[in-house]
Design a protein around this nucleic acid. Sequence first.
RNA 1: GGAGAGAUGGCAGAGUGGCCGAAUGCGGUUGUCUUGAAAACAACUGAGCCGAAAGGUUCCGGGGGUUCGAAUCCCUCUCUCUCCGCCA
Length: 423
Amino acid sequence: MIDIKLLREHTDFVRVAIDKKKFKTDIDAVLELDVARRAKITDAEKARAAQKATNIEMANLDKGSPEFQIKIKQMKAIAEKAKELEASAKDADEAFQEAFLSIPNLPDRSVPEGKGEEDNVVVSTWGDADANFPHTLPHFEIPWFESRVDFARGVKATGAGFPFYVGEMSRFVRALINFFLEEARQNGYQEVLPPILVNGQSATATGQLPDKEGQMYVDENEGLYLIPTAEVPVTNFYRDEVIEANEMPIYRCAYTPCFRREAGSWGAHVRGLNRLHQFDKVELVKWTDAESSMKELDNLRMDVESTLQKLNLPYRVLCMCTGDIGFPHAKQYDLEVFAAGQKRWLEVSSCSNFTDFQARRAGIRYRGLDGKLVTAHTLNGSGLAVPRVLASILENNLQKDGRVKVPECLQHWMNQEFIGEPS
RNA sequence: GGAGAGAUGGCAGAGUGGCCGAAUGCGGUUGUCUUGAAAACAACUGAGCCGAAAGGUUCCGGGGGUUCGAAUCCCUCUCUCUCCGCCA
């Protein structure tokens, strides 16, 4: 949620900011609901005050007296009125809350304006994507690929997009996870191993609900959702809590599998490891005060970049434009690695500052220097998503003999220098 | 899965129908005293919503009900604990 006071007092500012995002929101309808709700709350509270006053009078009367009997009659009417007005106020408040929840976060001033993907700005590149990769292939065309990432068996067990990683490839995935977690630890992030199912409240707090309902797998019996990212449970760690200001900023990291229905997004260009329904990811999460979140976003991005550099994968950093950043985001960088075989950039990390948007929904606050409670800021970034990093390594490190060279920083975890078999 | 017990402020813990946002203790903050600290003493010390403010109002796990009136009685859900069963 954005700050309701900002919406009331600087409506046009909010309107302009939201128009820059692609989300359609009827701000005027929300404001009308707000006015209606406040009027009804005031009415209900007046009625309640009258009831309380009468109740105190009655408490001081002799229960058997005629005055008491008269008061009972009066009270009956007052109480009934109060009850009605309270129900009405509650309805109005719920209607407002529902509408208010659909207002996206405002983009930060520094976010470039744009309509969509094509307007994202490349802010930096690292490594040489134009270098010659003489033996490269798209990873799904490497002869031994299907025997080590078995999609056909996955279809039997579950369905499309749920492959088995077999043998050394399974170990390679595990090596990547270990490497990512260790990188995060060295950058000061405390590891947590969170639940991978969350309740609706958690999903609402981080903004998956109601905006992206259809993207999650649901357990309707229990009202639980399979997480699309560790961001959801980890951010909710501090839900409805007050964080001590001197503990911030807090850095956490978590490895989890992630589940995404990807409804309607399948096509010829999402072959192999490019897009899966289940994939492994290490996520980085930060809680900061309201002043330092933009600086912390840059630090977060640099932490992820340093990991990519150790893997020696060419990558570029995109600053997402106003039309392409997500519903709860104020600012977002996407990191894309170059996959030489497909000659494509693959998104492997998204680093975002949600400012106070998630924290307000989640009730995460801290006590400011003046002793007042302040809504915290939350940030997160992938550090990193395994399958696309894997795809890029396979394509960029493919040797003349058909094997793939394991990046040096992973050899320690793999205990072997090459994977695959000579062709 | 079965049986029972419970859920009150940062924590502990009173309160079984009206004057209870809630005793008391601990903790915390500030002040007095002290060279400083401790101790002692005193005051203050939850959050949400409405309001420019004064102030009002809500919140005793969630929801519903009974009643003129509910922290208190009833129903229900959730969670915690104990015992039994099952189990990685």
